[in-house]
């Protein structure tokens, strides 16, 4: 039971990290509270559906393609829709809300509101003695962590990552040292959306695919990021582990409803003690 709970906790933490890192990256650089973030998760999930079911592509090939597709949509959205609202936090927020509604509507028109499903690419369980671990969960947890590690490497060990952090911390001085927001911002938005798309793609076999799936994903990203401190990458990672573990343990031992309740109470308590979030600065 303990090991199973740990695997569920790891899966849920890793999924929350994927959701929250992109959301907080976009906020950190552009001050956009992207209410359409969940819709990029949905785009990733639908991309996997289209690539695997009608097109017959292998699921494991479809995952990176779906992430890339969500990322490209993100770059286009940044250039066409968010660019005019740079520096206008409220305007950008309302725009993101509109984008969320438009993407939901577009998906409804094309795919109807029906629940879609993708054949389970992985089945079976691993068992060591009395411990049973479902393979698909291990796959989701493992690949999510790999993506998070790759993202961490990008942010901390590449020139692009250095530029992302510099622009987030002082855009004016970053510009004076040659980092052009017109290049960095769409890339950052795109990378955030790649993470969201991958979150959607990786969990397609576990969760249902429908036009409204983005709402739950957004809520998860939001609560993690608020707990970790808006705009903070390390904060998002730690908060994802805290909330993912709390959620898993309480779901397994009590109920999912109880888990959600406790998560929110936990966040409220932490925010009362530290209003800027665990890692945030006021």
């Amino acid at each position: 039971m303990l090991v199973q709970t740990l695997v569920i906790a790891a899966t849920s933490s890793a999924y929350m990290m994927l959701l929250a890192l992109g959301f907080t990256l976009i906020f950190g650089l552009m001050r956009i509270v992207n209410f359409a973030h969940g819709e990029f998760v949905m785009l990733g999930a639908y991309a996997v559906y289209v690539l695997t079911v009608p097109c017959g592509l292998n699921y494991f090939v479809a995952i990176p393609l779906a992430g890339l597709f969500a990322g490209l949509c993100g770059v286009v959205a940044e250039r066409l829709i968010f660019r005019p609202f740079l520096g206008d936090e409220l305007g950008a927020m309302i725009t993101s809300l509109a984008l969320a509604i438009i993407l939901q509507g577009a998906v409804m028109i094309v795919f109807t509101v029906d629940q879609l499903s993708v054949p389970r690419p992985i089945s079976g369980v691993l068992h060591f003695g009395s411990i049973y671990l479902p393979n698909d969960q291990i796959f989701v947890a493992g690949s999510s962590f790999l993506v998070v590690i790759a993202f961490h490497f990008l942010v901390h060990h590449t020139r692009l990552g250095l530029a992302l952090r510099a622009v987030a911390q002082d855009t004016e001085i970053a510009r004076a040292y040659g980092m052009a927001p017109s290049v960095i911002l769409p890339l950052a938005f795109g990378i955030g959306c790649v993470l969201a798309g991958l979150a959607g793609a990786l969990t397609v076999p576990l969760y249902a695919v429908n036009p409204f799936m983005g709402e739950a994903a957004l809520l998860k990203a939001f609560i993690v990021v608020v707990l970790g401190g808006l705009g903070s990458l390390p904060g998002a990672m730690i908060a994802a582990v805290i909330l993912g573990t709390t959620d898993a343990v309480i779901s397994v031992w009590f109920s999912a409803t109880m888990a959600t309740l406790v998560s929110f109470v936990l966040v409220v308590i932490i925010l009362i003690v530290k209003p800027s979030g665990l890692w945030g600065r006021a």
Partner: peptide, 12 residues
């Protein structure tokens, strides 16, 4: 850049 180390600041 307040959250970058000295080396990273130099590298920017």
């Amino acid at each position: 850049f307040p959250e970058l180390t000295v080396v990273e600041n130099l590298m920017t």
